[in-house]
Design a binder for these strands. Structure first.
Lengths: 232, 232
DNA sequence: CGGTATATTGAGTGTCTTCAATCTCAGTGG
DNA sequence: CCACTGAGATTGAAGACACTCAATATACCG
């Protein structure tokens, strides 16, 4: 990752993450306590129910954050990408992880011990406030999702998810969504059966609203997709 | 409310709420800045999208916290009762309210200005931490709910909600759930049509798992209900 | 004692799920 | 180079679950 310095101070994650409120000294402190590791697709950072002693800052790559249902079906709650922090909920509350974090695109991730997090919260109220605001933002997103999943049809939710993926991860040179998900993973975000996702994608394709090339999806008519998602 | 002092220090809410980490001086400060008001069923404390300049601490009564869907249908996200704080998310993030808070049982509620909240966060890291943990707890609950609503049947969710209502609000002398909700409100928690709730309640009644007397519901066999909810 | 809000019931329908079979494709080893 | 293998994608058929619409009943409020 050439663009990232080997120190937090120069790391591009620092500016975009909650750590932007930290002082130079604090960043030095993280540098001394953090551990950077590489992860491959399929690697699990932490699993629902397990205790973790620190949180993770993503430098590159993508994680899916999910809860597992009774029957083993995953429900994807969120993604984490460059600059995102995950695992902090369990650290702050000193509780077992309530989600599983799994790598879906090879990643470089810094581990930051709980002690450092607590130390910053204690001595830097701006940091505490940013962290709180981050949690509040996620809480709001979760609440929106509850409303959508409860009130919208699968078709509407799929459209919404496609737009979200476009907004969050962007597209490659050919206009295809940068993030690569299996149909099953898509269904685990939308909250439906894999076959339903396939059929609905196929419908959207027939209507020329999206294009599909193998696993890759391209949004042709975002405006129409947005209309289908019934957002406001 | 005889059991509550006219001061925060003696208020029974203080011990059970996040304010328990505040010093005696801080509590005096709240006393000077807070405003206590009475509200009637149907009153709206704040509405989704509106700006609020403070948060609310419930001394008595019950609020429903909900988001409104495109078609006007409410999705109830949470309830607030004695000792609960609401509105703090918008205050901390300085954003418009993302939910509506409406009284469903006559309430006595203290308004606490944003300035006081910020002041405490700044000077009391324990308070900041409690607030963070509260948010994290709500976030976890929201994520659980997302998984449930995405993966469980309406029947399972209804059973789960009934158990939640029992756990949260308890029962009256005859064993009926203390909280009184319309069928529509129930459906707005479960995330389904009102008629579905009615039919499923009727089924549960036939199976003797619950009893219904007008609007009141009594849980006869909580163990079985728990089994139906498919929780783990 | 109206009048309105809420609750209930029935019928019909559509969305979505489930199950099973088939297909595609990338990776592997002979 | 090609068959083999397994994971993922696709399609079809059948049926369950839940929703909508409409009519009616009941309860609650002033």
């Amino acid at each position: 990752m050439e663009e990232n310095s080997t120190f937090c101070k120069g790391c591009s994650c620092t500016e975009s993450s909650i750590f932007k409120t930290l002082s130079s000294d604090d960043l030095d402190f993280i540098d001394q306590s953090r551990i950077n590791n590489s992860y491959k697709k399929g690697d699990v950072l932490y699993r629902e129910g397990n205790r973790i002693m620190g949180c993770y800052c993503v430098m590159s790559g993508i994680l899916k954050i999910y809860k597992t249902g009774n029957d083993g079906k995953e429900q994807i709650i969120a993604f984490a990408r460059k600059g995102d922090i995950t695992g902090y909920r369990s650290v702050l509350s000193n509780e077992p992880a309530c989600t599983t974090a799994e790598v879906i695109e090879d990643a470089s991730i810094c581990y930051i011990p709980a002690s450092a997090m607590f130390s910053f919260v204690k001595k830097n109220s701006d940091f505490a406030l940013s962290l709180m605001q981050l949690t509040c933002k996620e809480l709001n997103q979760a609440n929106c999702f509850i409303k959508d999943i409860a009130q919208k049809t699968v078709r509407e939710r799929l459209a919404e998810v496609l737009i979200m993926l476009d907004d969050t991860f962007g597209t490659d040179n050919d206009g295809y969504l940068s993030i690569s998900l299996t149909r099953e993973e898509l269904s685990n975000i939308v909250g439906t059966a894999t076959e339903s996702v396939i059929r609905l994608l196929s419908d959207l394709k027939s209507d020329k609203i999206i294009a599909i090339s193998g696993k890759k999806i391209k949004i042709n008519d975002k405006k129409l997709l947005n209309k289908i998602s019934n957002s406001y």
